[in-house]
Deep mutational scan, measured.
Amino acid sequence: DESNKPILLPNESQSFERSVQLLDQIPSYDTHKIAVLYVGEGQSNSELAILSNEHGSYRYTEFLTGLGRLIELKDCQPDKVYLGGLDVCGEDGQFTYCWHDDIMQAVFHIATLMPTKDVDKHRCDKKRHLGNDFVSIVYNDSGEDFKLGTIKGQFNFVHVIVTPLDYECNLVSLQCRKDMEGLVDTSVAKIVSDRNLPFVARQMALHANMASQVHHSRSNPTDIYPSKWIARLRHIKRLRQRICEEAAYSNPSLPLVHPPSHSKAPAQTPAEPTPGYEVGQRKRLISSVEDFTE
């Protein structure tokens, strides 16, 4: 099969070098950035008060330690540790928490760990991170309901609301924008112990962030949302095809390698009803078989 044979790379090609550099910018793992907010007593309706908090309760602090690993920003190499735009020179604080497994990295933009500057009256330095995160974990210690939209931002799609209760338990629920209701189930609340709260809140936030990324990708319907490693695979396959075309153009005697095509017509299947918005969006999480067989 010609399409699977190794090909020689061009010795000097600026377009090839640019493509390789672009490939280096696509990590081999999925990345997520999640905002974390603490809401104190009497702050449920005040964005400024929430963003001005420099610490929270003892249970909130224990919750943070379970979310991930504490890292010092100045020691991080952005090409190895995903920071979601946090500055490593102290502009966004000294520490944050991050978490990773074999296929993804997540960083938490924690408002109480970011510096509260006197010259920044409206807390814009914090909002440029927190307001651009799709998902926020809100530790609501106010005793009042927290409403979506209290923290203004164009991309605040989903809130994971943590409400501490007695007996070391917590109520965990989801809020989302109306255009996200087909992807996020907000109907079920959970009672979770303090011990298990970081794991549950983190998983709910990661799932909500993946759904938000799919939702946000609708602005470019021709580019369905893939995982990062599938995006790398697609980029490599496009690069291979372009090299083959350039080689055939410079030397017409060489065969032009095309991806294999299936001449056999697909079997006719009964027509199915058109899937609704929710089903269609969830299918976009699934990769096409052509990603692996071309």
Rank of each mutant, 00 (worst) to 15 (best):
F108W: 02
I7P: 07
I161A: 02
L165H: 02
M180C: 12
S52W: 02
Q14H: 10
F16R: 05
S28Y: 14
P6T: 08
D1T: 11
V39F: 01
K147C: 10
S46Y: 03
G131V: 15
S15K: 07
Q25P: 05
L206E: 01
L70V: 10
L148I: 14
Q77H: 14
F199V: 03
L206Q: 01
R123A: 14
S3Y: 05
S187P: 06
E278P: 12
V172M: 02
D1H: 10
G93V: 11
K121E: 14
G85T: 05
Q94C: 12
D101A: 01
A267M: 09
V200Y: 04
G66Y: 01
I151P: 02
Q281H: 09
M180G: 02
R195M: 06
R284T: 12
V81M: 12
H262L: 09
H159V: 10
K283N: 13
Q281I: 08
K80I: 05
D92T: 09
G85M: 05
I7L: 10
Q94G: 10
L67H: 00
I230L: 05
H216P: 02
L86F: 11
I50M: 03
G90D: 09
Q105R: 12
P198S: 11
T163G: 01
S13Y: 07
F199S: 03
S46V: 02
V184F: 08
F108P: 01
V88Q: 10
I286C: 12
V289W: 06
G68A: 04
G85E: 10
A271M: 13
F155L: 15
P259R: 12
S19C: 15
V119T: 13
S46C: 10
N45E: 08
P6N: 09
N11S: 11
H100T: 15
L8A: 12
V119M: 11
L171I: 08
T116I: 09
N220Q: 06
L206V: 10
V279K: 14
G182D: 12
V188W: 10
E2K: 08
V188T: 11
V162K: 00
H159Y: 15
G90R: 11
Q268A: 11
S263R: 09
A271T: 09
A247D: 12
D185F: 02
K5A: 15
K152P: 11
D24P: 04
I26N: 06
S250P: 14
P270R: 09
S46M: 03
P260A: 12
M210F: 06
S44E: 07
L206P: 00
E17S: 08
Q43G: 01
C98W: 15
N156H: 07
E2H: 08
R242V: 15
L130P: 03
D166W: 01
T96W: 02
T31S: 05
D141V: 01
F63L: 02
D223N: 10
R18L: 10
H262R: 08
L9F: 11
R202S: 10
T274G: 10
H129P: 04
S28L: 13
F199G: 03
P6E: 11
R240I: 05
G143F: 03
P27L: 04
C169G: 05
L148A: 15
N53G: 02
Y38C: 00
E12H: 06
V135H: 00
D185P: 07
S217K: 05
V88G: 12
R195P: 05
N4T: 12
H258K: 13
L23H: 07
K190M: 15
M114I: 05
H122Y: 11
S13E: 11
R195I: 07
L113W: 03
T293A: 10
S57C: 03
F157M: 15
H258N: 12
N170P: 00
E272W: 09
S217W: 09
E278Y: 08
G93Q: 10
I103W: 13
G182P: 13
E54R: 04
T269P: 13
N132C: 14
T61H: 11
E246Y: 05
R218V: 08
S217V: 09
A265S: 09
Q25M: 11
R218A: 12
G90K: 08
P275K: 08
Q105D: 09
F155K: 14
P10V: 14
Y60K: 00
E246C: 08
K190D: 02
F155A: 11
H100Q: 14
L165M: 09
L37S: 01
A247Y: 09
V188H: 07
E47M: 03
D141I: 00
Y249G: 08
D179L: 02
A106V: 13
W229C: 07
E54A: 06
S288N: 09
F157L: 14
K74Y: 06
K127A: 12
R242Y: 13
G84W: 05
E91C: 08
V184S: 03
G68P: 01
L37K: 01
Q21E: 11
Y139W: 02
A267H: 10
Q213M: 11
K121W: 09
L48C: 09
P260L: 12
C89I: 05
Y38Q: 00
L48T: 14
I71K: 08
I34W: 00
C76V: 09
E245F: 09
E168N: 08
Q154N: 12
V200N: 01
T269Y: 09
R238I: 06
D145M: 04
M104G: 05
L148N: 11
D101H: 02
D166P: 08
K33H: 15
L37A: 02
V107D: 07
Q94M: 15
G153K: 04
C98R: 08
H235W: 08
K264H: 14
W99N: 03
N45M: 06
L171N: 03
K152Y: 05
Y60W: 02
S3A: 07
Q14V: 12
I26F: 07
H55D: 08
A267C: 12
L233F: 07
K80P: 14
L233C: 06
C244T: 13
Q21A: 11
L64K: 01
Y97N: 03
T293R: 06
Q241A: 10
S212G: 03
S253W: 07
P255I: 05
K264G: 14
G280Y: 04
G149F: 03
Q105Y: 12
K228N: 03
P10F: 09
T269R: 09
T186P: 05
D102T: 08
A231Y: 07
S15G: 12
R238C: 13
I191G: 01
K152L: 07
D141K: 01
C76R: 11
Y225C: 12
M180Y: 02
P27T: 04
L22Y: 10
E278W: 05
D87V: 02
V107A: 06
N209W: 01
Q14F: 13
P198I: 00
E54K: 05
S28A: 12
H235S: 08
A201W: 01
S15T: 08
S13N: 11
S217L: 06
S217G: 05
K126E: 04
E17G: 06
F134Q: 02
I191M: 11
L83S: 15
F146T: 01
D185R: 02
L51E: 03
F16A: 08
W229G: 09
E12L: 06
V135F: 01
S19K: 06
I34E: 01
T186C: 11
G280S: 12
S142C: 02
S173Y: 07
G131S: 15
V39R: 00
N11G: 11
H129L: 11
Y167E: 04
